[in-house]
Design a protein around this nucleic acid. Sequence first.
DNA 1: AGAGTGACATATT
DNA 2: CAATATGCCACTC
Length: 113
Amino acid sequence: MNITKEPNTRQPTIQQDIFQVVALIPYGKVATYGQVAALAGYPRHARLVGYALNRILAPDSDLPWHRVINAQGRLSLHKLDIHAEELQRFKLEQEGVVFAEGRVNLKTFQWQP
DNA sequence: AGAGTGACATATT
DNA sequence: CAATATGCCACTC
């Protein structure tokens, strides 16, 4: 075979980086999109985070995607799937995250690495 | 190859 | 609180 060069030249995509960071979010804590983006090395790519997560959103995914919320302490899934939002909330509550007035108190539950 | 899109963030009104 | 504006840029078509 003629293997002149390594096909695996693709550098880590933002999705991969996001994937790694989200996987680090501890149980019972949440992170904002901007936070995840910054930790992944993409300071102002909050939107990209959402986009990336959208791609990996899978039932068998090991990613705690439900621990990623927006900067207002609210869930942002409703635009895609209103039901998924309820599921996300349910999952978070099971982890001990408290919703007050329909939102999470980030001061209390935001992941602080 | 260029235009459109987006699980957002921040600031302002 | 809600609406609006702007930034940001990888990804999709």
